[in-house]
Write a protein that binds this DNA or RNA. Structure first.
Ligand code: FES
Ligand code: FES
Lengths: 146, 146
DNA sequence: AGAATTCTTATAAATTTATGTTGAAAAATA
DNA sequence: TATTTTTCAACATAAATTTATAAGAATTCT
């Protein structure tokens, strides 16, 4: 029930990859590498990273030796920011964020429910940072040194 | 961020409508009426109600004077059951419910996050009944007597 | 100049969303 | 019981969106 789009999923994994590489030397990473590691089409990654760039969560460096790099420290990037950039502001149903979307809000009983449920997610994602994700990854794969 | 499909939204509103009509005489309701009240295409409602019927949440009565009616008392139908019937068992990402869906669960850091977030929603919807929704609707529209 | 990499645009496949058309089953009625 | 009405059921189709891939241009480094 209720689906996170592939954009949101792949984009988050992309950000985790960038964060995992962030600690040593802060070198930029090329998408090709992430594409290989995460087994996601590079063409699709190119589309997905655009909104992340627009939201100033990643910086791009063009040309040879270029690539992508996080714009801030992973501990300073909230999961909510990532999903906001990738999926837009809509929470479960559009009317939660855009009161003009449905013209039935005044009568609609489900509105309150979707709104509450959206808040649960929002709060959870607000309190999860990219650093938390990196730590989970490290715990799951203690041997991997990227 | 993260979207509930129209199937889930309209289907839930459909169930609320049925619940609102359930109290008096338990008469069956024709889809046309719900279509008019909720401004949803009747053809689309016909598609949406099929999984609800399969899940035995509603019963259909054919022929003249027929229509649809809730299979159980609204206080005995959980929102989670409704969404499960409409959207399937997948919670945010498929791998949460189907461990074979992704073959990266062992390494994937985001898995735990989507799983926790899914649990938040699941618990909320598990503890919300159709009766709760009807009461919200009544509170919002005290004058309406259907 | 040449290689590496992002950036841009195009396009195709799959899925979701929504409507239309026709037919079959059940109940009411005469 | 035959007829008619009401309603669900099934199938087909079209538009919109999401998902994914392809090809080439632009930029930067060496
Ligand atoms: S779904 Fe938007 S107001 Fe009910
Ligand atoms: S999204 Fe399924 S394991 Fe990471």
């Amino acid at each position: 029930m209720i689906r996170l789009s592939t954009k949101g999923r792949y984009g988050t994994r992309l950000m985790v990859s960038l964060a995992q590489h962030y600690h040593n030397r802060r070198e930029s990473i090329i998408l090709k590498k992430i594409s290989d590691e995460e087994e996601i089409s590079i063409r699709y990654l190119e589309q997905i990273i655009i909104p992340l760039k627009i939201a100033r969560l990643v910086k791009s460096i063009r040309g040879a030796g270029g690539g992508y790099i996080l714009a801030r420290d992973p501990s300073n990037i909230k999961l909510r920011e990532i999903l906001l950039a990738l999926e837009g502001a809509c929470c479960l149903v559009e009317c939660v964020d855009d009161e003009d979307y449905c013209d039935r809000i005044k009568e609609c009983a489900t509105y309150e429910i979707w709104k509450n449920a959206s808040s649960l997610l929002k709060d959870y994602f607000e309190n999860t940072t990219l650093q938390d994700l990196v730590e989970i990854a490290d715990k799951k794969n203690p041997s991997v040194r990227k």
